[in-house]
């Protein structure tokens, strides 16, 4: 199945801004993170179709996955 992955902030450096990614049926959010080449510790916040999602959430064809790095400064 194909999903759309969008990377934000520093995760774009050396990768991409948005790209279609091919994953097997039953793949999880964590699989999309790995397929995008993002180390799990750098994928601090993930949204699927605009809603906050955990790494263990299963994906469906056509899902839009947005991945953010950790931001904590004040």
């Amino acid at each position: 199945m194909q999903i759309a992955v969008k990377l934000f902030a520093t995760l774009r450096d050396g990768r991409f801004e948005s790209a279609p990614i091919e994953l097997p049926i039953g793949a999880l959010v964590s699989d999309a993170i790995e397929a995008a080449g993002v180390p799990p510790k750098d994928a601090a916040v993930v949204f699927v179709n605009g809603r906050h999602a955990e790494p263990g959430r299963p994906l469906s064809p056509g899902d839009a996955v947005a991945i953010f790095p950790p931001v904590g400064g004040g």
């Binding site: 902030a9 520093t10 799990p40 510790k41 994928a43 601090a44 916040v45 993930v46 906050h52 955990e54 790494p55 790095p69 950790p70 931001v71 904590g72 400064g73 004040g74």
Partner: peptide, 27 residues
């Protein structure tokens, strides 16, 4: 707590600001 549930798993208590710093406009 939910928003930061994925952070700190590797013991990191901070984020990209340790590398990028912060400038006048962001805060």
């Amino acid at each position: 707590a939910g928003l930061y549930a994925g952070a700190g798993a590797d013991g990191a208590d901070r984020g990209e600001e340790t590398r990028l710093g912060n400038q006048s406009y962001g805060p």
